[in-house]
Design a protein around this nucleic acid. Structure first.
Length: 858
DNA sequence: ATCCTCCCCTAC
DNA sequence: TAAGGTAGGGGAGGAT
């Protein structure tokens, strides 16, 4: 998975996909990194090859670098006969047993060896060993709650919801990327065609020509996915009531401060609305009937397991077990229920098999819904194979079962809604074609809660209107529905209950927000702990933005805070309990992905809210208003210009230092992005010097700014107040690879920055070819030209002319002309003329002649 | 009218 | 013990 960079997370096997996906820029970066890594410092680890298992300190990434720089080898996978050492600081018992035969060594072995400059004996660093004089197993302290530094990664490694979320986005991206390839061969269609020809007699009736008209959508859904995938390696449990969960049995510790009854009561109270007058008895009735999420706490005592059942088999469902039910409750209902643990790797494997099979062999017209559920437009497949929808379903399901060893169900219909409802009817392990003629009858008896968008609340609201089926719902007028539920919701209810659904299959996935939320294990003692954790969340958000190469222009903070009436401890171990929720958002002046900036904003909100850290139960950080960086890249011209315009990039007299003011948010990204794109090639002399001065205050607190250390004139430290300077020096000591530095500056986001720079050198860094590429991207990706970008291009060209590189200028203008010619908007054409005007002016000045280029768009 | 913020709801 | 994430849609109500 491209979106996960370094962690050992099981997606490493997707290597081919990752490689194919790498953009040019990423390649440049990788090559650069590789180049640096070639710089071998020692041979300490010669002959050693490691595989890093789980979270370690130093990180897997860091260990990799250390190995590469010091003669060792880093394996992304454990290769039993080749990997010499497994590095881990924490292994679950099961895995530990499994790996007992191998050398499992603590990461300190590597860092200490490096420190000593020689390879130390690993005996003292074994995570466990068989020496009876030593403790058998050296268990590290496990991350208990979010105040521990390893909590986040451990949580992510165990959270099913995190997994299904990230997998869903991953597969949306996978579909996106796969669709970009030029595929003409669909071997599955050939197999199907052959099979249909051989089976011809069987299904004559379905070859109905009227069915061929219009779109045919197929919905594929794996049957109780986690269970099926889990049973691949436990075939002996097939046919039994099985549930996937963290709990190993119904054993739970009694904890102080827990009050199931009180907590449950609060949920119920909120659910039915605090201020409404109610008849007690009726309420109880109502609550039970509509089953709010909180009722799952009902009938559970303090020592019952509060773990959730992520997925249960159909046999278990027959006995009343439901997904999301608590283990304690489920075991009471069905003591024979078999509990099996999660197997995240297996889920990934099965899901990937499902997707690649369909996309390689049948069609690229796939909409990914989740790891185990997708829609496909089968019009083309049916057309080219002459198969009936049912034949396609039969054949495809057979193949999927062969490949994944898991059953799936498929529904077919003329739109997504019908296909989905058909799947529901087909389950388990079946198929159903909802033919046009039977839609009316079919819809009448469909439960309203099967309509997409109708969940707990809407379902309840409808039920109070005496409506439980689509038939009953269709009796309501559009107007009634809209006034009752709002315009859009009303309209879609109106359409959906009639089996109508205009939604097109969505193949293009464009993320609109990126977030990282944790509402489990949040227990802080003080502000330092909460801030540390928030920083980690910001890092996580930055990582996710980087992975999709986007920046966000707005930050939203979501908090869960223990409700004043809620028991001190939640019924669920380390759960959030009954909480009040708060969201606050803040817009940025400039889009960013930088953790440190996000933190800045979040921290400001946190300070305003002034919440006791010990009352926090959940934290989420979300980036909105996303912008793709390929678009931002044109914006980088803007940065380039706005940084330089006071310097007159082109003019010969540029060495004189200039001062300018900007708000810290404006400023933050600029040196980075400019330098990134206009990377000086091996040119250390033209280092950009930034000098920070005129701080308004000595006591650093709120506002922060970033300075890229490698570009900072060391003497700038002298200009800082003593305490600030100390802080910076400490931070430098703590991390020698520091690229960014936070410079707090209280009560003003304004700081003065003095820049000394020979701009002509900067200009030299932009190679002609790079500029061409750049311009192409600008014109292709931007909707309309920004003035500043116009100026940038124009100045660049003028500069070329001044440097007597008229040939190059000519070429670029030609290219620009061709690009703009294919654009419809007049503004682009205007842009061309503006740029041309500047160039011709210089031409006239210097050569007393105009350049011969196109001056009209025909 | 239209947009923005703060929710809530839903789905997997 | 337990791992209650994440993205998108949309409504209410206020600002423009």
């Amino acid at each position: 998975m491209k979106r996960n960079r370094n962690e050992a997370n099981g997606f490493e096997m997707w290597g081919g996909y990752m490689e194919a996906k790498k953009t040019k820029l990423e390649k440049q970066f990788t090559e650069k990194a590789a180049g640096n890594n070639n710089h071998v410092k020692s041979q300490i680890f010669k002959g050693i090859s490691i595989f890093v298992n789980g979270y370690t300190l130093p990180s897997a990434d860091e260990l990799k670098r250390i190995m590469m720089e010091n003669g060792g080898v880093y394996h992304h996978y454990h290769r039993p006969n080749i990997t010499t050492h497994i590095i881990a600081s924490n292994l679950p018992t099961a895995k530990l047993k499994l790996l007992k035969q191998f050398k499992v060594v603590k990461p300190e072995w590597i860092s200490d060896s490096l420190k000593e400059g020689k390879l130390l004996n690993y005996d003292g660093y074994l995570l466990f060993n068989d020496n009876p004089n030593q403790p058998k197993i050296d268990f590290p302290v496990r991350a208990k709650n979010a105040s521990e530094p390893t909590f986040l990664s451990e949580f992510y490694n165990n959270s099913r919801l995190h997994l299904i979320s990230t997998m869903a986005t991953t597969f949306k991206h996978l579909v996106n990327d796969t669709r970009k390839r030029n595929q003409t061969d669909y071997p599955g269609r050939l197999r199907l065609k052959k099979w249909v020809e051989q089976n011809e007699v069987k299904d004559v009736l379905s070859h109905d020509s009227e069915l061929d008209s219009g779109k045919i959508v197929m919905h594929i859904d794996m049957d109780c996915f986690f269970v099926s995938a889990g049973l691949v390696e436990r075939p002996e449990l097939r046919g039994l009531p099985v549930a996937v969960t963290h709990a190993k049995g119904n054993l739970s510790k009694k904890r102080e401060g827990v009050d199931h009854g009180a907590e449950f009561g609060l949920y119920v109270k909120r659910w039915r609305g605090d201020d409404n007058e109610h008849d007690e008895e009726n309420d109880e009735e109502e609550v039970r009937e509509i089953k709010p999420r909180s009722t799952k706490r009902d009938g559970i005592n303090e020592t019952d397991s509060m773990a959730e059942i992520a997925c249960c088999s159909y046999e278990a469902r027959k006995l009343g077990i439901k997904n999301g039910m608590l283990v304690g409750q489920a075991l009471k209902m069905c003591p024979a229920l078999k509990l099996i643990p999660y197997n995240f790797e297996q889920y990934k494997k099965v899901a990937l098999t499902l997707y690649t099979h369909i996309m390689n062999d049948y069609t690229l017209d796939v909409e990914a819904v989740s790891c185990d559920e997708l829609y496909l437009d089968c019009s083309h497949i049916l057309e080219t194979t002459k198969a009936s929808p049912i034949e396609l379903a039969t054949f495809l399901r057979k193949e999927i079962k062969e490949k994944t060893k898991c059953p799936c169900s498929t529904g077919i219909g003329s739109n997504c809604l019908l296909a989905r409802l058909a799947t529901k009817k087909a389950k388990p392990d079946g198929q159903f074609y909802l033919e046009p003629g039977i839609i009316m009858d079919f819809m009448r008896n469909i439960d309203i809660s099967d309509i997409p968008g109708v969940g707990r609340t809407l379902g309840h609201k409808l039920s109070t209107l005496g409506i439980s089926t689509c038939g009953e719902l269709s009796a309501l007028s559009l107007q009634t529905l809209q006034s009752e539920f709002g315009n859009k919701t009303g309209f879609s209810l109106y359409k959906h209950c009639r089996g109508e659904d205009d939604r097109k299959l969505n193949y293009d996935y464009k993320p609109k927000s990126v977030s990282a939320d944790v509402n489990y294990g949040i227990r802080f003692q003080n502000k330092e702990e909460s801030e540390n954790f928030i920083k980690q969340l910001c890092d996580e958000v930055e990582k996710r933005l980087d992975d999709i190469e986007m920046n966000g222009k707005a930050v939203t903070l979501k908090l869960m805070i223990r409700n004043a009436e809620a028991p001190k401890e939640s019924a669920k171990f380390l759960g959030h309990g009954f909480c009040d929720n708060i969201t606050k958002s803040s817009s940025l002046t400039k889009s960013t992905s930088k953790s440190i900036i996000i933190f800045q904003v979040v921290n400001k909100i946190m300070n305003q809210l002034d919440i006791d850290p010990s009352e926090l139960r959940g934290i989420g950080i979300q980036m909105n208003k996303l912008e793709s960086r390929t678009v931002t890249r044109a914006g980088r011209i803007e940065n380039f210009i706005s940084n330089m315009k006071s310097d007159k990039i082109i003019s010969t007299n540029v060495s004189e230092p200039k001062s300018f003011q900007c708000s810290s948010t404006d400023y933050l990204n600029k040196p980075k992005s400019v330098m990134d794109f206009f990377k000086p090639k091996e040119d250390l002399n033209s280092k950009k010097h930034l000098k920070v001065s005129n701080f308004k205050s000595n006591s650093p607190h709120e506002s922060l700014a970033n300075i890229k250390m490698s570009q900072v004139d060391p003497s700038f430290l002298d200009a800082l107040p003593a305490d600030l300077r100390l802080e910076i020096e400490n931070e430098l000591k703590a991390n020698e690879n520091l690229n960014f530095l936070t410079i707090p500056n209280e009560n003003s986001s304004i700081m003065e920055v003095t820049m000394t720079e020979e701009s002509s050198k900067l200009y030299q860094h932009v190679q002609i070819d790079q500029m061409k590429e750049f311009i192409e991207e600008w014109v292709v990706t931007e909707n309309e030209p920004k003035t500043c970008d116009n100026i940038m291009v124009s100045k660049y060209l003028c500069n070329l002319v001044r440097d007597a590189k008229t040939e190059d200028a000519y070429e670029i203008i030609r290219k620009l002309y061709r690009l703009i010619k294919s654009k419809d908007q007049v503004v682009w054409k205007q842009s061309y003329f503006d740029i041309l005007k500047d160039v011709q002016e210089i031409m006239l000045n210097l050569y007393n002649a105009k350049m011969k280029v196109e001056t009209t768009f025909r």
